[in-house]
Design a protein around this nucleic acid. Structure first.
Lengths: 278, 278
DNA sequence: TATAATAATGACTGGTTGGTCATTTGTCAA
DNA sequence: TTGACAAATGACCAACCAGTCATTATTATA
């Protein structure tokens, strides 16, 4: 495991227990069994560390959930159940991170962190919206944004339960219960509160699309990290295509499928899917 | 305005902007126009200050909401709408405090603060439950705890909207929209997740009833603060009755009504109503 | 006006913080 | 064995923190 990974795992534990601000770099280095200097060889600052943690987990989480929603095998109420399941399972598996994210989200004053949080939040909104469109189509035109918010509310309160109480819970039951509630609201609620205009207004604050250049940068970095493999080869080809369109859509789709199931590439797969759709 | 109040208002502003830990006593005293020494004449520590702030606002909030739910004039869906309205109105009016509360709730490591937060949370649960019982009675026996959590979820996500975006919102519409959703869930959801046992388990962690002695202490303090008035006289009589039961229930009820509408006494009224019910 | 009592001050203390950098340690090929 | 390079160290720094207390200013009383 790389030094960076060791530090991140140590820090994760401490942050979850004590919070970000209350955990000193000193503590992290002691807990990792390294010196203070070594820490600053891996990270330029404490802020960069929390940023890396958030990136790592949110990318994984978002590509997981996107994978479920865009899988044509999932549909109807089963999709809804799986959507909740993926979310809660992920929260449970990475509970240390989930705790930090909940605690630190609204709390920080680092501009970059705030906008990062907002960005991920919007990505999750997009995925949720795409799922709702798939499930209910036109019938929820007026109430779809309210539905998103209700789903977020459900997730928030119920994830508290298994994050902050150590009780084994029946995740499956929980997800069926929430799917039923969502279904009820989708089919019968009539009074919308969040209109298109309102939603746009909430969103506007500083949302930047990712440019082709940024995607290429990320791909190049990943290409260097990977061993020779189908995934690496696919990435190289995809990079070339992003730089100068040359491959047919079918080939591109196939290449993305090649890398999608590798956890190290799922984030790039997500980015590319969004990129080619636009 | 007392020095204590000046400090509290200054601190409230700064805490809402920067968070509790990130705001130094120095900053507070500068913002209040007093010296550091003077601060420590009013509060024993920075922790005592945040505690006082939380007490002040939560007591007000809880007695407000309890007042609505226990008013026999309110019933049916109108009660539900008013319940939401009181909540959001209060959040809006005291938005600085609401921000702090949301940010700091899960974040602190002061034991006393955590248990205080949990205690208030449970009081809100109790009030919500009492409202749901009033509205739906036996029909929601299995799903009532889930309903509480859904309502909490609604409140959480929607309060974010007007706390962290500066947009004028139609509170009335919001509350009708949420009342409809709650009604839908109450009448049609069939799959419970939070059972009685589970709910008890979540609650168990350190909940202490308030003893007669503690109530008397609070009353004595308030009696000293008040000018001569009907309220003060009522308080004195009530205190005597708590010490040695002597008055008829009707008289007690009347005396509590006397003090209930005074904002300085509404918290004591709430405590007494709970005390006499048990 | 003199005296006592109270309120307010801000320099100071002991401690912790994130971050730096001259120095030491480890690892190679020659 | 040597020397060149990279990796790792931890003493050190300036900045800031919550909280104290000898001193001064203000007010009330006689």
């Amino acid at each position: 495991m790389s030094k960076k990974q060791i530090i991140m795992e140590s820090a994760l534990e401490l942050f979850a227990k004590q919070g970000f601000e209350a955990t000193s770099v000193q503590q992290i280095t002691e807990h990792s069994g390294i010196s203070k200097g070594a820490f600053y060889l891996s990270f330029k600052s404490k802020d960069e560390l929390i940023m890396a943690l958030i990136d790592q987990f949110m990318m994984q989480f978002i590509s997981d959930i996107d994978h479920i929603v865009n899988d044509p095998n999932n549909s109807g109420e089963e999709l809804l159940v799986k959507f909740f399941y993926t979310t809660f399972y992920s929260f449970q598996k990475h509970s240390d991170f989930a705790k930090i994210f909940i605690k630190e989200q609204a709390h920080t004053f680092n501009e970059e962190l705030i906008s990062k949080g907002r960005h991920f939040d919007q990505l999750i909104d997009d995925i949720t919206l795409s799922m709702l469109d798939q499930l209910y189509g036109e019938t929820i035109q007026h109430t779809k944004y309210d539905l998103i918010y209700c789903i977020k509310g459900f997730m928030h309160v119920y994830s508290h339960l298994f994050l902050f109480f150590n009780v084994p819970l029946d995740l499956d039951l929980l997800c069926r219960s929430l799917a039923e509630k969502t279904e009820l609201l989708a089919k019968h609620s009539t009074i919308p509160f969040i209109t298109d205009e309102l939603y746009e207004m909430f969103r506007k604050t500083g949302h930047e699309e990712m440019t082709a250049g940024q995607i290429i940068e990320i791909m190049e970095q990943k290409i260097e990290e990977l061993e020779d493999s189908i995934e690496k080869e696919s990435l190289v080809l995809l990079k070339q295509d992003v730089q100068e369109l040359s491959l047919s859509p079918a080939i591109v789709k196939g290449l993305i499928t090649n890398i999608r199931n590798n956890p190290h590439c799922s984030w790039i797969a997500f980015l590319l899917l969004n990129y080619y759709e636009v």
